[in-house]
C-alpha cells in the first residue's frame, strides 16, 4: 500500500513524508543515551516512555531529538507547535480538494503513529490544553489517537516513539498535570563545554578557518559564566561564525565586525 495514504475505518488519510534530517550530535553523549534509553522496549508488554527535552533556546534540543531518531534507526517526523494550534491540526485536518471534496490530511504526528517513527513535537509548551488532551491516550498505555473530525481511532505502530521539546522560558500555556505525569523523563539539555562547543561550530561551519572559530569561541568563553548562564547559545556561536566568514570574505575586518555582532547580540538578549 502507498505509504502516503492509509485507509482507517473506511476513511482515507493522506500522510506526510518523514523529515530528511542529517543531524549530527557532537559530544554530550550522555544526553543522547538518556533519550535513547527512554525509547527502549524490552518486551511486548513493556511500553516506551514519552520523554521531554527541556533547555534554553539554541542548546540543541531539536538536533538531539532528530539525531537520536537517526541513531534509533527510525525516521523523524518533526512537528512545530504554535499557540493557536487546534487538536485537528495535531491529528487529522480536513482540507477542501478539487471538486469541493473534503480530504483528510494526517499531521506529522499521525504519520509517525501510523507508519512508525519518531515524532518530535517541537516547542510543545506552546500548545493549549485542548491539544494536550487529545494526546493523552497516545501518551499512556492506550497508545492511540482519536480524530473527532475524521471519526477514526488510530492505533500506534509498535515502532512509534515520541519526544517533545520545550523551552525553559515562559510558556504560552501551562502543561496540564495529567500530561505532565505522562511526559517522563524530563531530560535537561545543558549548554556544552568549551571543547564541545568548538567541535560543534567546526562541524556546522566547516568552511570557517580555525583562527576564526577559535576567535568566536574565545570571545564566547571569555566570560564563561555568561555562556553558562545562557547569555549565548550554540546557535549564536554558529550564526556568529557564519556571519564572520561572510564579512571576512568581503574583505572586512571580521574581528571588528565580530565584536560589533557580539555586542549588539548580547545587548538584544
Amino acid at each position: 500500500m502507498d505509504s502516503k495514504k492509509r485507509i482507517i475505518d473506511g476513511i482515507e488519510i493522506s500522510l506526510r513524508e518523514p523529515d530528511i534530517t542529517h543531524y549530527k550530535w557532537i559530544g554530550r553523549d550522555e544526553e543522547m543515551r538518556f533519550l535513547l534509553a527512554s525509547w527502549l522496549q524490552i518486551d511486548k508488554e513493556d511500553l516506551p516512555m514519552t520523554p521531554v527535552l527541556v533547555g534554553d533556546p539554541g542548546n540543541g534540543k531539536t538536533t538531539l531529538a532528530c539525531a537520536s531518531a537517526q541513531e534509533f534507526n527510525q525516521p523523524a517526523y518533526l512537528m512545530n507547535c504554535t499557540s493557536d494550534m487546534r487538536p485537528e491540526d495535531l491529528i487529522v485536518t480536513p482540507v477542501i480538494s478539487s471538486g469541493n471534496q473534503i480530504k483528510y490530511r494526517g499531521s506529522p504526528l499521525v504519520s509517525a503513529v501510523i507508519n512508525g517513527g519518531v515524532c518530535v513535537l517541537d516547542e510543545a509548551n506552546r500548545m493549549n490544553e485542548k491539544c494536550w488532551a487529545s494526546l493523552a491516550p497516545l501518551l499512556d498505555d492506550r497508545r492511540y489517537v482519536e480524530s473527532v473530525i475524521a471519526g477514526v481511532k488510530i492505533k500506534a505502530h509498535s515502532d512509534f516513539r515520541f519526544v517533545a521539546t520545550m523551552n525553559d522560558d515562559p510558556s504560552t500555556y501551562t502543561i496540564p498535570g495529567y500530561i505532565e505525569s505522562r511526559l517522563k523523563p524530563v531530560i535537561e539539555v545543558e549548554p556544552p563545554s568549551g571543547e564541545v562547543l568548538r567541535a560543534i561550530v567546526k562541524a556546522n561551519v566547516p568552511y570557517a578557518s580555525e583562527d576564526l572559530i577559535e576567535s568566536v569561541i574565545q570571545h564566547m568563553l571569555k566570560d564563561e559564566d555568561a555562556f553558562l548562564s545562557r547569555s549565548f547559545s550554540i546557535r549564536d556561536a554558529i550564526e556568529v561564525t557564519r556571519y564572520a566568514v561572510r564579512l571576512s570574505r568581503k574583505g572586512e575586518d571580521y574581528q571588528k565586525s565580530f565584536e560589533y555582532i557580539m555586542k549588539t547580540g548580547s545587548e538584544s538578549l
Binding site: R33, A37, I42, D46
Partner: peptide, 28 residues
Amino acid sequence: YKYARNLAISDGHVYPNLYNILAAAKYT
C-alpha cells in the same frame, strides 16, 4: 524504576548502578 532499568541496559549492564538510579530519579 523502568527508566533506571533502561539506562542500565543502554549502559551495557543488567542492573542499574547508582549513577543510573540517580539519573532516573532526577529525570522522572
